[in-house]
Write a protein that binds this DNA or RNA. Structure first.
Lengths: 231, 231
DNA sequence: ATTCACAGATGATTTAAATCATTTTGAATA
DNA sequence: TATTCAAAATGATTTAAATCATCTGTGAAT
């Protein structure tokens, strides 16, 4: 696989691109390492040492936290331009695993290099800061939702959250398996099945193999309207 | 109330202090506005416009998100040196309210000024970035906990979380009322009462008026040991 | 001192969701 | 086309937690 150079990189959402700084381009280009990951491959392992920052060039990734009895919680889904692997001050380990949901390309920049980049480009540091800030807001919203929503509402919320990753064409088709969706909603697969069947009965969505097609997004929005979330 | 100057500020944890830069001190000193808040006073209101960043000089604050039927979720507790009011790109509104748990002093810096400070002090931007990153990690851990812990475990987890704010003397005394603690744990006050009574019966804690004294921290840790959280 | 108000505790009941168990479905393979 | 297999759906049961209701103790106001 040939490495993509930062100058000719097509990723519009990458924080490096957003900064639009020639010096930064060439510096990151020197230190970054772009890797290809197949579907369902681990990008980072929970418990491993934090060595740097991952910039998602292309692909979808689930960020999961493992719990008791093999249970896992999907804490976040990421797409092109997102970051994984919060930098640590030193010697820290990842509190989460990151696993690709599809074939992906990801750029890695080690701790020291990214620190240098931050110090020479306050704009970059600012952008990444804002990214974390936004994710923190989302995460805190999710805390409230998990504590207060019913199973049905959790499913609808998760569908509308996951949908953002699959906005390619006009038909909204979410390709995510039951287990991952249940782990995202924080419920079990049986409950998920029941809710999906119910929504299918109401013609809000259809359930062909390996995908979920949303027909009536507005009705989904109505279900969780009282929580007034902006997707 | 006399304004504290940044040079003579005693706050060891303030991000401005951590940067240890004379130019930054005088700049922030010019633009900041220090205010005194009485116990149970709102610092920011959910839904209001984001105008800047709040640096907690002294005091404890609960960050809450309001839900259905007057239910509220405490998403985070903050103390000296922490930040509230994640900056928005523009025109954004607070997704949360921040309310003091005790008399507090808080410094406010408007959006434009803090942006200038970030651009001239990448170190500051980096520190704040790391702060958000850390909070995001905590928040994501809480997502998992809310989804997987039992009511008892949630209470214990919340006690150990809240405890950090009250580490003054050798006896661990948490001054927080039942409603706030229940909102933090994501449960109702009745369940909270039951669990606290049980823990009291087991001599793990005692419950004098307006406080919770932890006698056996290790036993609390044991209860949630399977989740291996580091407090 | 007496009432009032409220935080907290506890008991009884209901309800939602998890779990356990079984069946269905559809794709891949022989 | 039959067979296998795993994912998904559905049914039955159990369980945990929410809700509703009542009671208790403490401090403030009259």
């Amino acid at each position: 696989m040939k490495e993509v150079s930062c100058d000719s990189c097509i990723s519009k959402n990458c924080f490096i691109q957003v900064c639009n700084d020639e010096k930064l381009f060439s510096f990151i280009n020197e230190v970054k390492r772009t890797s290809f990951y197949r579907k369902k491959q681990h990008v980072v392992y929970e418990g491993e040492q934090v060595l740097g920052l991952y910039f998602i060039l292309k692909g979808k990734i689930k960020v999961v936290s493992s719990g008791l009895f093999g249970k896992t919680q999907v804490v976040r889904l990421t797409q092109d331009g997102d970051i994984i692997g919060h930098r640590g001050y030193g010697g820290e380990t990842y509190p989460i695993s990151a696993i690709t949901l599809e074939d992906s390309e990801i750029c890695f920049v080690d701790n020291d290099s990214i620190y240098t980049a931050f110090m020479e480009n306050p704009k970059l540091a600012f952008e990444v800061m804002m990214y974390y800030s936004k994710e923190l807001r989302n995460s805190e919203a999710k805390i409230k939702n998990l504590a207060q929503m019913s199973v049905c509402e959790k499913v609808v919320d998760s569908l509308l959250y996951a949908e953002k990753l699959y906005l390619n064409n006009e038909t909204i088709s979410i390709q995510i398996d039951r287990q991952d969706l249940a782990d995202l909603a924080g419920i079990n697969t049986e409950q998920l099945s029941r809710v999906l069947s119910e929504l299918k009965k109401e013609k809000i969505l259809s359930l062909p193999k390996n995908e979920i097609i949303i027909h009536n997004r507005n009705q989904l929005l109505e279900i969780i309207e009282p929580f007034n979330i902006t997707y």
